[in-house]
Design a protein around this nucleic acid. Sequence first.
DNA 1: CAGTCGTGGTT
DNA 2: TAACCAAGACT
Length: 344
Amino acid sequence: MKKSELFAAHLLDWFDINKREMPWRETKDPYKIWLSEVMLQQTQVNTVRDYYLRFIERFPTIESLAGADEDDVLKYWEGLGYYSRVRNFQTAVREVEETYGSVPADGEKFLALKGVGPYTRGAVMSIAFNLPYPAVDGNVFRVFSRLDDDPTDTAKPAARKHFEEKVMQVMPERAGDFNEALMELGATVCTPRNPICMLCPVNEHCEAFEAGTVLERPVKIKKLKRKELRYKVMLIVNDAGQLLITQRPKSGLLGGMWQFPMFDEDMATGDIEEILDMKLADDKEKFVHVTHGFTHLDWLLDVYIARTTDEASGDYRFIALEEKEKYTFPVSMTKIFDHYQAGK
DNA sequence: CAGTCGTGGTT
DNA sequence: TAACCAAGACT
């Protein structure tokens, strides 16, 4: 027996014994299976159960749903969320009734229907007709990224195709049961936070289990919203025409680089004078607004020009424009230099 | 490709 | 507790 066959056999043996009771598993009616798969999109089994039973009692057949009033149908979806699902489903069911008469046992035709994507095609085609299509959902991402200790970023759309190919490499004769078994394993054993590896029927096939990287899989790089941070930047000029700068802390963002004094956008001039230990004039004049984006945040800098006759003290020092090459400045400060020199 | 679409449960 | 996640698809 090949390795891939052994994996599928172990998983199916486990599924035959441990699969949970679900109303839609009591039928092979393609319409009912289809409905359950649409309801299960981004929605947990326990939430779906009651909705499924109510819906299927009210609209038990393709004909009954196709002929139903849209608002009446929507009422049976109320509270489930993602309401375009049910509108698309009824649209698709009507097309099935008119065009095919019944759910087509054809992956391409089925995929073309409204609201049917790669997952729903795979699930319905394999469960209702035992056609060998992959049904890759969040569970399957997780299970296979662990099985192969695969670092693929599952947040990217391209990852789906990658894992569909992996599924097809081990797809056995019982396509529908296999797809369900993968999802069932992911939902009950190979869970995100607290996987029960010791009870996993395929842990002997799992590279992440062997490597101890189970909790590091799947890799999902979060698209973090860039936060906006607003600062008041003081461009302080002394009698010699020099500019006041200071050095950032050695660690952290732009560690050790030099910059013009930066303060919270709300800080009063009096407080700034106290921190710098110098008297400022002309500080009301806003010089320029500069923005600079980092990977994870955006700086919004309001630059003010001020003059002083005092000496620099503490961590601050005055430098002439010609001296700026001796210091390292981040691009945001270079932008300010450029504005200053252009305005002179 | 990145945003958007709902709601409920978990850590 | 503020993310994170859940049997995704559409624009």
